[in-house]
């Protein structure tokens, strides 16, 4: 079967998982339904010839589910039975469907699936192995051509982990005195 049919199947699966994650009452079931979306995305990356991304997405999804399950499922007193405002839901559905219809016109202007523009990538693909010495061209972009981008990524990641650690620390400054 061609790639497009597999991708349609996986994307439909992901959409069903996303809707289920947003509508299920139970917290653990909702988090696992998001896991469906993430692992489906990992399979989609494999079909789209991005093996590095599939591995990273897989690890990310498992870590994300561990964090969310550890953080939210042990609170027995919490039940999701919150009803959303009906007027708000109606307004949101109308606006989002208008955005979807406008999106149809916008996506017509893009190059069709399977024919990328790839203007910058031609240089990376032809000269990358000689200039960087790396067989994996994605790695040569991350660590050589766009190394400052990766430095910024590490900075953002470090800052967010530092923020989470600061928020979650047990002993505040007042209690220590």
């Amino acid at each position: 079967m061609p790639v497009e049919i597999w991708l349609h199947f996986i994307l439909g699966f992901m959409i069903i998982g996303a809707i289920a994650a947003l509508e299920i009452k139970d917290v653990l079931s909702a988090i696992i339904a998001v896991g469906i979306v993430g692992l489906g995305l990992s399979v989609a990356f494999l079909f789209l010839q991005a093996p590095d991304l599939a591995l990273v997405q897989f690890v990310f999804e498992i870590l994300c589910m561990i964090i969310l399950i550890r953080a939210f499922t042990h609170r027995k007193e919490h039940k999701i039975d919150l009803k959303s405002n009906v007027v708000l839901v109606a307004i949101a559905v109308v606006i989002l469907s208008v955005v979807f219809v406008l999106g149809i016109f916008a996506f017509k202007e893009l190059p069709s699936f399977g024919k990328p523009i790839a203007r910058i990538a031609e240089r990376y693909l032809t000269k990358g192995p000689q200039e960087t010495g790396s067989a994996n061209i994605v790695t040569s972009i991350i660590l050589d051509y766009r190394a400052y981008d990766t430095l910024g990524e590490i900075t953002v990641l470090f800052t967010s982990i530092l923020g989470a650690f600061t928020i979650l620390r047990v002993i505040g400054r007042k209690q220590r005195r």
Partner: peptide, 22 residues
């Protein structure tokens, strides 16, 4: 395939983990 979006998305996935933890 075009390697440039793959490199950038690799960055974005890692940042998403930080966002979720925060």
């Amino acid at each position: 395939v075009d390697p440039l979006p793959q490199a950038l998305v690799l960055t974005a996935i890692v940042i998403e983990l930080g966002i979720t933890a925060l």
